[in-house]
């Protein structure tokens, strides 16, 4: 039996929307895995429902969204709403991709805990998730 403390942090790395840019998501997924996380990668072109459902089914501790298409506001809002509907409103959600700085605040208001732009070291993402997962 694995005790609660020994349980690895489970992270869902998700690519919602039509965006096919998966380089960043895969690099981050691999870095998290190397750092000892349990990583579930959704693959491309997931609907917000699929992302929320995967988060629930996989019982993850954190969700990392990767969006480079400019559709981040709409998709994130929808995903946050669907997570709440599944009683996962307090789960850690972080976002990476091509995100204009002026959208950082509105995203945080939606409940996104961090936005990681281009050039973010993977170590920063790892540390952030480790210290923010409840």
């Amino acid at each position: 039996m694995v005790s609660e403390q020994e349980r690895k942090i489970r992270v869902l790395v998700a690519k919602p929307g039509l965006d096919g840019h998966d380089r960043g998501a895969k690099v981050v997924a691999r870095a998290l895995r190397d750092a000892g996380f349990e990583v579930i990668y959704t693959g491309l072109r997931q609907t917000p429902e699929q992302v929320a459902e995967a988060a629930l089914q996989e019982d993850v501790d954190a969700v990392g969204l990767s969006i480079l298409s400019g559709a981040h506001m709409r998709l994130t809002e929808e995903i946050m709403k669907l997570l709440k509907e599944r009683d996962m409103g307090d789960i850690l959600v972080v976002l990476g991709g091509i995100i204009p700085e002026e959208d950082y605040e509105p995203l945080k208001k939606l409940g996104v805990k961090a936005v990681f732009g281009p050039g973010t070291p993977t170590s920063e993402i790892i540390d952030f998730i480790k210290s923010h997962v409840k």
């Binding site: 929307g17 039509l18 072109r45 609907t47 400019g70 559709a71 709409r74």
Partner: peptide, 11 residues
Amino acid sequence: HPMSAGEVGKC
């Protein structure tokens, strides 16, 4: 299309 929501004219 439902998959297009939020993506129209963006990229």
